[in-house]
Write a protein that binds this DNA or RNA. Structure first.
Lengths: 332, 332
DNA sequence: TTGAAAGCGCTAACAA
DNA sequence: TTGTTAGCGCTTTCAA
């Protein structure tokens, strides 16, 4: 592949001049500039980004570290990040940690080694991993999940509020024994959505009880098992709020398998949509999040942080909406 | 951040020795090696991959260019690629072309500029874009969709056979006016699945007719519109075979909206699964593909190609299966 | 406005 | 076995 020296030779100018023409950094005699452009064409020259990056001690790569690439929530989010990144000349390396702190640590190490320009992370929960990025002064934006103990730019949704909406809606529909299937305690979204559920119950004079709460893993199977265990209680619930989309699907599968009628016998509300929710029977009531915009917002913050590392960190909170469908509307 | 010189100084050895210790390329006095390891620890040294790549004229990045990150088919495939890449020390840059040849061309240019170690591509159809990669001797593997006119490693499923299975099944169920909603002509999967459909009809003595065939865009809306236009025919179909998952969803939505009973009035079979197919009512009969394994196979081929650029190109074909569910089983 | 030359951090000849 | 040195391809002083 042609180098800048080949172009310089072909155009009969110095490499410095080629660089000036290519980067528009300084004024160049139009005649020389034209010769350079022609040589670039002739040789089909493409600047070597690796060399450029080394020289400038910077790169054009962002790492996006998410916990489950199979979850449409994250793919939509990544798309939001990517569209903004692309527009600012960055490429996105997608890293799937599978909720595994070990894998996450490996990706963080890779981001460090590659001297990535920035990292967007939805953490699997170990805070110390992120500190290495902070220490190395690599710009970081936390997305969807909060980072404990470090001050970084963060993009979240109003988890507590969304969970309150969901739980209050179930109460309004006349459900009384409302269960909650949430995620691992160490993950902020799991904790916040549980808090919203508890707060809604209390504000209506109900006392949340631990045996209607399950800590699962944000996956389909986990939702299924949690639902099964709830149904096996001596006093099983008459409704369930699941704090993410996949666990909602799992819970509904369990109810279908056991022949429990939804919503007549048990009402269901889930946090975050699933695609084709309208084709699923019964259609699912969900707290919907602006997933794509979450990604966009994070990408914008990251871009700003890279441009201005000294700027104070900010936290963006996006809104959630309750979409009422069949799974929670009790026949009168 | 610490450089190899800092480590060398700290360990009181030459940079070359540090490099030898770190890469295990040559034997080093254990005493010196220990000093180096200690210095690496003390300084929290991380090799600069950018510099290493420049020096070696190689990178550890693969680009995976797909046409729709919102399609679970591709996310599963990417996961397969990623798992293998990770195992061989490569990272994956995910590029989403949105079926747009322009965007695809931009990503190819980026892969070229970054001197990516390899590219896995599910092309949106313009062959000349890929030629730039070939000319630059960047290893390429075509996945899911064939590349016309160039000889590259390729991983496909048996599209013609799968389409035949689907169509024959609909005939067996007693459907007679079977329509086909396929993708853009320039995309090999669209053409091959259409061919399978036509072949199945012919082998049973039916003549495929053009007014039961629609060329859509592999998206949900396209499937919806194609189905609507089929229903508006003077002699509408009594069954439909859609050649990808999203168009199948769109077609079913259209049937639901128009109050057309599935499978009683119109039978439906789709190519490729959707997640939660079992929760959708009616559940969808599909030709299922080993999506994750497609990704794995492509990644393995890419790894081999990088290790041995001279090896002859190969084509891997994986099998498809018909999963019969409600949408195509006519009540007797 | 242009060219010469140094250097980003690393690895691999080559010499010792 | 170890150190010295050159150079990957680029950008940016500095001098002309």
């Amino acid at each position: 592949m042609a180098t800048i020296y080949d172009v310089a030779r072909q155009a009969q100018v110095s490499p410095a001049t080629v660089s000036r023409v290519l980067n528009g950094r300084a004024s160049v005699d139009p005649v020389l500039a034209a010769r350079v452009q022609q040589a670039v064409q002739d040789l089909n020259y493409r600047p070597n980004v690796v060399a450029r990056n080394l020289r400038l001690s910077q790169t054009s790569l962002w790492a996006v570290i998410i916990s489950d690439i199979g979850n449409p929530f994250f793919t939509s989010m990544v798309r939001g990040v990517e569209d903004v990144a692309q527009g600012s000349g960055f490429s996105v390396v997608l890293c799937n940690s599978d909720e595994d702190p070990e894998k996450e640590a490996r990706y963080v190490a890779a981001a460090l080694a590659q001297r990535m320009a920035g990292v967007v992370i939805s953490t699997s929960g170990r805070p110390n991993v992120i500190n290495r990025l902070i220490e190395a002064r690599i710009p970081v934006v936390a997305i969807d999940r909060q980072l404990r103990g470090v001050s970084v730019d963060t993009v979240l949704v109003d988890n507590v509020h969304g969970a309150e909406l969901a739980t209050t809606h179930l109460l309004d529909q006349g459900y009384r024994r409302i269960a909650c299937i949430t995620g691992p305690r160490r993950i902020s979204t799991a904790a916040q959505r549980l808090r919203g559920y508890q707060r809604a119950l209390k504000s209506r004079g109900h006392q949340p009880t631990d045996n209607l709460i399950r800590f699962a893993d944000f996956r389909e199977e986990g939702g299924y098992r949690a639902m099964a265990s709830l149904l096996d209680e001596t006093e099983p619930p008459d409704a369930v709020f699941a704090t993410n989309n996949l666990m909602t699907v799992g819970a509904v599968e369990c109810l279908v398998d056991r022949g429990v009628k939804v919503p007549a016998k048990v009402g269901v509300v889930g946090f975050d949509d699933i695609p084709w929710a309208h084709l699923v029977r019964p259609s699912l009531t969900t707290v919907s999040q602006p997933t794509y915009d979450l990604g966009r917002a994070a990408a914008v913050l990251l871009g700003e942080r890279i441009a201005n590392p000294a700027k104070p960190t900010s936290m963006v909170t996006l809104h959630t909406d309750l979409h009422i469908r069949e799974s929670s509307t009790r026949p009168a």
